[in-house]
């Protein structure tokens, strides 16, 4: 069996790539994709801890399932908001969304 650390390395990498993408990407949709990376890395974590360390309960798996459903809801709302931005400004570039800077 593949050791647990390998999975954890992948998920941690995914998490920080997501955080980096959230900070550095200029397109709102790309920012949203970065957030999805973060959420997916967490779901890997939960499943792996559950599978390797505590196989007799299913709590971690359930958390992953709920997490997937919630992240879907989250991206639905986020996309709705982004569409709304596009309608008002014809643009989804993060640098252009600075109407309130003062």
């Amino acid at each position: 069996m593949i050791p647990m650390e390998y999975y954890l390395t992948v998920s941690t990498l995914m998490f920080f790539i997501g955080v980096f993408g959230f900070i550095s990407r200029k397109n709102l949709l790309a920012v949203l994709i970065s957030i999805e990376l973060i959420l997916n890395s967490v779901e890997i974590n939960f499943s792996i801890f559950n599978r390797y360390l505590y196989p007799d309960h299913m709590e971690g798996m359930f958390f992953s399932l709920f997490g997937i459903a919630i992240s879907a809801a989250e991206s639905a709302v986020a996309i709705a908001v982004i569409i709304n931005i596009y309608r008002t400004t014809q643009n989804i570039d993060v640098r252009q969304i600075n109407k309130m800077k003062n």
Partner: peptide, 24 residues
């Protein structure tokens, strides 16, 4: 619209970070 976008992205990020902590 801008406020909504900022809030949803930040709150998604923060809940992702929170979940990461919970997984550990």
């Amino acid at each position: 619209a801008e406020a909504g976008a900022k809030y949803i992205l930040i709150s998604a990020l923060s809940s992702g970070i929170m979940m990461f902590g919970l997984s550990y």
